[in-house]
């Protein structure tokens, strides 16, 4: 599959950077509260990978913008409507099942998207994607294995993971808007394989909720940003 992406590279970097930034923030919320210490460390590792990706993309977005903003300026000094992350990444953690499904859906999409990006003519974007793909391969695998454990675990875990799937399913359409629509069959095949292994089915299509890519977010993002940006906004021009 080869594609030409008509989004400007700056816009694309912003989207991918915001995805990683916001989801890493959600993973930070798990820190110290996970089901086991082992899982706690694993979620932090994924969070750190995503935070690293966010820094690369946002710094690059800032460079292309050429207005003197770096990743920190973009992360801490933009308002809600200027964030371009997909709605899936800003969804609250919920229980472990919901977080794991969110991770699986997102990472499986990221993997396909970054495979394309790695072939991009933009050398910086391609390099970021190539590095990130190694990280993402682990995220997909880790999350998929947990989906299987939960789906094929106890009655309770099966219900919870089904709830998680139904929570996140509404936000899947947004991942495949524009040129990304071409990635959907491969994504569904990947997701279906794992769900089947977990004894679960791919949900029926629902009316997708979109808007994140245009800066129209769920109620959750405002709260997330209020917390994330609070110190920077309280002390303008301070160094940290």
């Amino acid at each position: 599959m080869s594609q030409t992406f008509t989004l400007s590279p700056a816009e694309l970097a912003l989207r991918l950077g915001d995805d990683a930034l916001i989801l890493s923030h959600r993973l930070c919320e798990w820190c110290g509260h996970a089901p086991t210490l082992e899982v706690d460390l694993a979620l932090s590792n994924i969070g750190l990978d995503l935070l690293g990706q966010a820094q690369f993309f946002l710094n690059y977005a800032g460079e292309m913008e050429n207005a003197g903003r770096d990743a920190d300026a973009l992360a801490y000094h933009r308002d809600e409507h200027e964030f371009k992350n997909c709605l899936l990444t800003e969804q609250p953690n919920g229980d472990f099942a919901r977080s794991i499904v969110r991770q699986f859906f997102f990472s499986a999409w990221q993997q396909l998207r970054f495979h394309e990006l790695a072939k991009s003519g933009d050398a910086t974007m391609a390099a970021i994607a190539t590095k990130a793909l190694k990280e993402i391969a682990y995220h997909v695998q880790f999350a998929a294995e947990w989906v299987v454990r939960l789906g094929d675990g106890t009655e309770e875990s099966k219900c919870r993971v089904a709830d998680g799937i139904s929570w996140s399913w509404r936000f899947v359409d947004e991942l495949f808007t524009g040129e990304d629509a071409a990635l959907r069959p491969a994504w569904e095949a990947r997701v279906r394989a794992t769900l089947n292994e977990a004894g679960l089915d791919l949900p029926a299509p629902v009316r997708g909720i979109t808007g994140g890519r245009e800066g129209r977010h769920s109620e959750y993002l405002g709260h997330l940003l209020a917390e994330m940006q609070y110190v920077q906004r309280c002390h303008p021009n301070a160094q940290w």
Partner: peptide, 20 residues
């Protein structure tokens, strides 16, 4: 050592805990 319900989980936990 690590705790894990299955072998695959043990490998991943070992990776996340001991090779950071």
């Amino acid at each position: 050592s690590v705790h894990a319900a299955d072998a695959r989980g043990a490998v991943e936990a070992a990776r996340d805990v001991y090779t950071r």
